[in-house]
Amino acid sequence: MIPAIEQLREAVLVAAPGASVEIVASTPAAQQPSLLVNREHLFAVAKFFKEDARFQMDFCSCVTGVDYPAKADKPGFIEVVYHLYSVAQKHGPIILKVRAPRELAQCEVPSLTPLWRGCEFQEREAYDLFGIRFTGHPDLRRILMWDEFTDHPMRKDYRPPLDYEWEPTPHGETLARTKQMGGLTPPSASMEKVGAK
């Protein structure tokens, strides 16, 4: 059984001294608090959870990134969340979080692929969609978008290229865009196809 989150934190501080570990609560009903670890000690903490006989977290289930842009009072950061389970002892989850700055040049997190091979594709996806670089990843390149793509689409400040098409019943953002484009008049001229080339 996984002990309470405070005891997990104590165990981590014993195993990886110097790590800064905070407890982040989940929604009250979910009862899935997580440990926020600093970047330098993430690998050591993860290794501890994998190898310690009490936990044996040999299965990394889910790796994802979350983007928190800067607000008026708080700086922005990108968070990477790891969900660990154990097949040997059938318990879990232990949730690890780590934060990195949002600027692309400094957005680096140590990769946990050397510990769990299953993180490989998910970390590549986080790199592709968020721009998080995982140091120590064996093969970090884009996985879902094409290689020549330069943006990181899941960031909150991503603007897709302008590709407006007339909508018969616009609402919300599309209505605002329609008004910018000059109104709700439907297409008038016939759209005849002139053939190839």
């Binding site: 603007r159 290229p161 302008l162 407006y164 098409e165 007339w166 484009m181 000059g182 439907p186 297409p187 759209m191 196809k193 002139v194 053939g195 190839a196 080339k197």
Partner: peptide, 14 residues
């Protein structure tokens, strides 16, 4: 040549 978008929005940039 194949498809003409109803609104010529190519002139307006993002």
């Amino acid at each position: 040549n194949v498809y003409q978008r109803p609104h010529q929005c190519c002139e307006v940039t993002n």
